[in-house]
Design a protein around this nucleic acid. Sequence first.
DNA 1: CGCGTAAGTTAGTTGCGTTAACTTATACGA
DNA 2: TCGTATAAGTTAACGCAACTAACTTACGCG
Lengths: 213, 213
Amino acid sequence: MTEKTESQHTADKITKTAFHHGDLKEALLHACYLVISEQGAEHFSLADACRRAGVSTAAPYKHFRDRDEILAILIARGFEMMTEQLQARVTEAGRGTLPGIVAMGHAYIEFAVTEQHIFRLMFGRNPELKQEARALKSGTDCFTNVIEEVAIFCAAQEYTGDPKPLAVRLWTFVHGVACLQIDEDYDVVAPETDVMAMIAATTPNLLADVLQS
Amino acid sequence: MTEKTESQHTADKITKTAFHHGDLKEALLHACYLVISEQGAEHFSLADACRRAGVSTAAPYKHFRDRDEILAILIARGFEMMTEQLQARVTEAGRGTLPGIVAMGHAYIEFAVTEQHIFRLMFGRNPELKQEARALKSGTDCFTNVIEEVAIFCAAQEYTGDPKPLAVRLWTFVHGVACLQIDEDYDVVAPETDVMAMIAATTPNLLADVLQS
DNA sequence: CGCGTAAGTTAGTTGCGTTAACTTATACGA
DNA sequence: TCGTATAAGTTAACGCAACTAACTTACGCG
């Protein structure tokens, strides 16, 4: 009898998929997302999210194992959002082209900036969170996608080497940009930096081996 | 009374610069450093550090404004350590040379790995911590040093362009490596990655403009 | 030698995460 | 149709951490 009632009744029963609240599970996830987006995961308090959702602080435990499970779900969703956005941008700019690769880099930064705190959560050192099945899967899926796009690019450029190390390089650089940007370290030390321009300028350097062929 | 006889008033009073404990301030900082090194700043509890130092949980407030001041001091010291280590390595490998630049990158990674949690603290998004005067100063000093070394390299290579954007590029890449390495993201997604080799291989690409001249 | 105060203490407040025990209301079977 | 098992909420309590207040100790100086 531990059905989910969400997908089960949706067909016949449109309203009231859940009991008292409507859909507290999702409402709590959204509240947590909002709190984290505003205050950062470091200062995130589950009790705060409960207040916003208008329920007691014990309510979440009817839907989640603990605080960490909620964070793991938000991490997983973050990676899914990121994957979608990267895909959209590379498709738009042209798969298998240099502008396509650059566009993915730009999309990475945009995601990191607009979803700063979720991004920090996704890439922070939280071994117990990131080893959660969902978070782990959506994370690896996201990067698998990047490798795939770089592989398509390599093929289009008739580069016969292994695309994976190149993907790692590109990812590393763009990730460095994202971290330093959202941590405001550029602002302190090199405020003149135009990160988007830097990515566009540096990507060809990182792909020099491919572009020469 | 277990005096430490550290040097604070040094000149007039040699012994017993501190009262009851010896030098609780320093002892607490060390205890906090240990706790963070073991458990990470996220799970760091000041009370835990107090227990290790053998004092009550109220004791720190005679020496520090609050928890955050301690963290800010540790951040500042982290940057100072890092600066020293980068300097030592570039000097050893040769200032103004490509191996020197690569050595700095390697030293950056080594620091990030051996001082994982302090590194995370240094570069995490903690606006209120990083704006602390000491932390801010030692952080900018650290990067100023990197720029200086890149400038020396550029001069040695007779490159007439601005060295700063190059330094930013190098820093960005190496920082990306450091983050992904300590967050164990490479392990999940590209475990074959040899980060030191990657830095050695990629640095010339990032410095292509200089090396061509 | 006595006093001021630096440097500790204990005890109390607040807030969070979590659990236990209780209550409510819904879905399903007799 | 109704009764009941249970899903989904509640309140109340526990332990722990950050911090504060009020008290105590003992060093150092005049």
